[in-house]
Computed example of a mutant assay.
Amino acid sequence: MSEPSPPPKDGPSTFADGVRLAIGTLSVFPVRPGVVDRRAGGVAMAVAPLVGAAIGAVGGLVLAISLWLGTASLPASVLAVAAVALLTRGLHLDGLADLADGLGSGKPAERALEIMKRSDIGPFGVVTLVFILLVQVTALWEATAGAGAGAGALTLVAACAAGRLALTWACRAGIPPARPDGLGAMVAGTVRRSVAVAVTALVLAGTAALFHLHGTGAFDPWSSGSPSESPGGWGYWAYVEMPHSGVGGLPGAGATGAGLVLGLGPFFAPLAMLVGLLAAWAVRRRAVRRLGGVTGDVLGALVEIATATTLLACTILTN
């Protein structure tokens, strides 16, 4: 993830400065820059999941409009993922490619950091980008085709929020920067563990509430049908309708997936987000061991990895 934000300025920052920094750094949304310092960086990383949710909501809107216009689920999912990439200037994807090249080179930390700083993308980066985008598109396609535009859009919102929640944890106190300058140096170690825990609890609770409201039919801006008419998947029917029995009282065809979602209810999405955070944690740990800390590229890579893993986990938990 590159550093589009202005260099640090002297003087104490405010909470609003941190919010502006989060929006300006993590999205293309135009904001007026404020005071940029480590305190603002900590606020920015703490509120990053809200920016991610907003980006996911725009991507979900693109998905819903595409389907409403008659576009098939697969190309609609491609457009939604492309919209998310455009809204982030492709910075997170660029960071993922750079990290893949740096770690894939097998070089010592100093040399790997030099490789990551280059503007070109090597073979490791290209292959990683192809696979991560395939996972994101096909997982969103599966979510949309199986449960409709509303559930697909909310899943994208949850995945994008999880991707930015990975930033909150990657910048918690105790995690050093790999370089003495740059975005990584400004935000590394700026988030207290208690803040990260509180933000995570709020994001997971909010996600569960959104999926519950969508599932019960109280909130579904993309569908005019009643929840009981949902063909299955993640709506009201998915966790209220009991799985039917097959031969000998054993679960019949299709009952396994329904029974699983029945047990998880709207909490399958927060669980998938935790899986995404776990994947980001593993990559972050590897990067810190190899590079000596985090960089802007490492942070961008964690966004994409957590997003893709969350989408994939949603499809696994609901099938």
Rank of each mutant, 00 (worst) to 15 (best):
I23T: 14
V19D: 03
V36C: 06
D37Y: 10
R20V: 07
A40T: 06
G41H: 08
V36A: 06
A53Q: 02
V36S: 00
L26C: 04
A54N: 01
T25M: 14
L26V: 01
F15M: 05
G52Q: 07
A40Q: 14
G18Q: 06
R38S: 12
A16W: 13
A22G: 01
G42R: 09
M45E: 12
V28D: 02
R38A: 14
D37L: 12
R32M: 06
G52L: 07
G18C: 11
V35L: 02
F15I: 15
A53T: 01
V31Q: 05
R32F: 03
V36Y: 14
V51P: 11
V19A: 13
R39V: 13
P49W: 01
F29W: 12
P49I: 02
V19S: 02
R39A: 15
A44H: 04
A53F: 03
A48C: 04
A22K: 01
G18N: 09
S27F: 07
R20L: 00
A53C: 02
L50P: 08
S27H: 04
G24W: 03
G42S: 13
T25Q: 10
V36M: 07
D37W: 07
P33W: 14
V51R: 12
F15S: 03
V47C: 11
T25I: 10
P49D: 02
G34I: 13
T25D: 04
A40V: 05
V31P: 06
A46R: 11
S27P: 07
G24Q: 13
A40N: 10
G18I: 12
V43C: 06
T25H: 15
A40H: 05
F15L: 15
V43T: 10
G18V: 10
P30M: 09
A44S: 15
V28E: 05
L26N: 05
V51S: 12
V47L: 13
D17S: 07
R32H: 08
F29D: 02
I23R: 04
V35T: 15
V35I: 14
A22I: 01
G41C: 10
A48H: 08
P33N: 09
G18S: 09
F15Q: 01
A16N: 00
V35C: 10
D17A: 05
S27D: 01
G42K: 11
P30I: 09
G34R: 13
I23A: 11
P33I: 13
G42I: 06
V31T: 15
G52F: 04
R39F: 14
V19M: 06
D17F: 07
D17G: 05
A48M: 10
V47R: 09
R39N: 05
V51N: 10
G18F: 07
T25W: 08
R32Y: 00
L21N: 08
M45Y: 05
V28L: 13
R20Y: 02
F29M: 12
A40F: 08
D17C: 12
G24S: 08
I23H: 02
P33K: 13
A44P: 05
R38Q: 15
P33G: 09
I23N: 03
P33T: 11
A40C: 04
P33L: 12
